[in-house]
């Protein structure tokens, strides 16, 4: 592989020769034409049904529309941030319980992790939204979305952290132990900091999942981006316009998170490679 930028494509295929290059050019042109045709068909469809009418788009010329979208985005970001922090904290505890020396804790942590990973987020949301109130647990809507999203993400987080910790060479622990360090010190000062570095990119990628899960906020009537978009749609009937704008916002944010993950991955990979 040629260095840090080798992709799976470079691994699977040889560098293209002249014949392959012609074929690639051909496929590229055909794909672009097909894509253009598809887009044209879609736009035509919207035109016919009147979705391109200026009255649906003029709302985006108004400051209040953007302020409303901005409030929704802020709500989304708050839930995403709180969920990420909670999922990390809970994931950390679960990981430690899973690797510690007490069998009971190992088993309990494994069980919780499997539940967290195996149950869809929506089910956790229904639990806090529909079931919990019957037992007298009345939560504000912020927590009705944040808790289930965190619970849904903590299992994956725990497993990511565990894979990092397991990847730290045994010799690191042995060296620390033979210097007389106790197990808590060995874990927190030697093993965890290294294992954590290995999985930073994975953890950031998981933030994308958390971020997408926040769109369930509409189920619990929490004013996130999605919820406010729905309000706009029902007020102005501007289905296409609003969804398009909101989709672009989600794409941009997830793109930024992925970009961050890629940057961090490149850096940590360089650091890990240098450490070997």
């Amino acid at each position: 592989m040629n260095g840090a930028h080798a992709s799976i494509r470079d691994v699977l295929y040889d560098a293209p020769g002249p014949k392959a290059k012609r074929r690639i050019a051909f496929v590229t042109v055909i794909s672009l034409l097909a894509l253009a045709a598809l887009l044209a068909a879609i736009v035509r469809r919207f035109y016919v049904t009147g979705q391109l009418d200026p009255k649906y788009w003029s709302i985006f010329l108004r400051y209040t529309t953007w302020r409303f979208i901005g409030r929704g985005l802020l709500g989304t970001l708050q839930v995403a941030a709180a969920s990420s922090v909670l999922a990390f904290a809970a994931g950390m505890l679960l990981m430690m319980a899973r690797v510690c020396r007490y069998r009971v804790l190992n088993a309990i942590a494994t069980f919780i992790i499997e539940l967290s990973r195996g149950i869809p987020t929506l089910l956790f949301i229904y639990f806090f939204f529909l079931l919990a109130p019957q037992f007298g647990l009345q939560l504000p809507s912020f927590w009705r979305i944040t808790l289930p999203v965190s619970i849904s993400a903590m299992g994956v987080t725990a497993e990511a952290l565990r894979s990092g910790v397991n990847a730290v060479p045994r010799g690191q622990t042995e060296a620390a132990v033979s210097l007389g360090m106790r197990s808590a010190s060995v874990f927190f000062k030697i093993v965890f900091p290294q294992g954590f570095r290995y999985v930073i990119p994975t953890l950031i990628s998981e933030m994308v999942i958390v971020f997408k899960d926040t769109t369930y906020a509409y189920v619990v009537n929490y004013a996130d981006l999605m919820q406010n978009a729905k309000v706009l749609i029902s007020n102005y009937d501007a289905l296409l316009a609003v969804y398009l704008v909101v989709a672009v916002i989600y794409i941009v944010i997830n793109y930024l998170i992925n970009k961050l993950a890629a940057t961090v991955e490149r850096r940590t990979r360089a650091a890990v490679a240098a450490a070997k």
Binding site: G171, Q172, E174, G180, R182, A275
Partner: peptide, 23 residues
């Protein structure tokens, strides 16, 4: 336990693969 860690700290160990703390 504590006593084991204490006795270990009195005996140094140098490994074939160095095992310096990489971070």
């Amino acid at each position: 336990g504590k006593k084991l860690a204490e006795l270990r700290s009195q005996i140094g160990m140098v490994f074939q693969s160095f095992n310096l703390f990489a971070h």
